[in-house]
Nucleic acid binder design. Structure first.
Lengths: 151, 151
DNA sequence: ACTTATTCTTTGCTAAAGGCAAAAATACTG
DNA sequence: CAGTATTTTTGCCTTTAGCAAAGAATAAGT
């Protein structure tokens, strides 16, 4: 019965690998079409309107180093998509938030990125879409759990 | 009812995005632990022992440019993991194949990468593993189909 | 046969992505 | 106040990646 696990693991490894390559290509196209660098798109996609974030928060949730985030934010700041102010409570912290322009951009981005996926998903049944959701949700939980345990 | 598609698309978009970040981190860790660059690991993972590949074949299946592949192969060649010979039938083509050392390496890599996933998957039920497989398989098909249509 | 186009790979150059270590700025603690 | 810890930034370097031109070989046209 352990044999079965091994076989399933192997198949999932392969598939996930392929999915990854495709999704990276997809992200790259999408970012380019919207005049953004991939890293900028990825960053914008996780900041919510009205909230503020520290550099570290963004870094950990993007699985990147703080120094890398500083540079990404530099770019977004230069394009006036985010604000960066020093926190008053603890002036070591930066408070990153979306500007109005940034909010509009992010809204459009999320909308259109979801539309792109809607376009892909429109020809399959609602049940299959649920299957995709369930499968990816399970996998995502496993991988992020594993990452937490393995630093 | 179109509402439902939109909602499903949105949820799947979010999840896929998160999964991607995690899997990239996972790949990066794994490659580093094996003394490989990420690009090298990704390349090795798709070449099968005994087969030969042109630069272009590898490039398209990795969703990268031929010139990028030349450099990746340079690295693998320098480490004596792959051979690169000119094809005799058509001397424009390169024939890339695994060396013995490369075959051993790839065998180990595949084995251990599947083990890593086995480790993640071992605590869930076999049915859930099948759900993961089915979900990711569906999604992979959709995304790669979409990529083909959208160049 | 000889010129012209096509195809595959490589090379030179550049940009983007990303990390590490040290520095700068601030906060906390004895 | 001196020393330590934390957060971000800066300098520097590596890795990843593509584009455009060059090289090398084949195919096609006349």
């Amino acid at each position: 019965m352990d044999m079965k696990l091994k076989q399933q693991a192997s198949a999932i490894t392969e598939l996930t690998f392929d999915l990854l390559r495709c999704c990276e290509a997809k992200e790259k196209m999408f970012a380019k079409d919207h005049g953004l660098k991939v890293a900028e798109f990825r960053c914008l996609r996780i900041v919510e309107a009205g909230k503020t974030y520290s550099v570290q928060e963004l870094a950990t949730s993007m699985h990147l180093s703080p120094s890398r985030l500083t540079r990404i934010i530099d770019g977004l700041f230069a394009e006036k998509l985010v604000d960066r102010v020093q926190s008053i409570e603890d002036r070591r912290f930066a408070k990153i938030s979306l500007t109005n322009k940034g909010q509009t951009m992010v809204g459009k981005l999320k909308e259109e990125y979801a539309d792109l996926h809607g376009e892909m998903l429109k020809d399959i049944s609602s049940e299959d879409r649920d299957k995709i959701y369930d499968g990816i949700s399970l996998m995502q939980g496993l991988v992020s759990g594993w990452l937490l345990r393995n630093v």
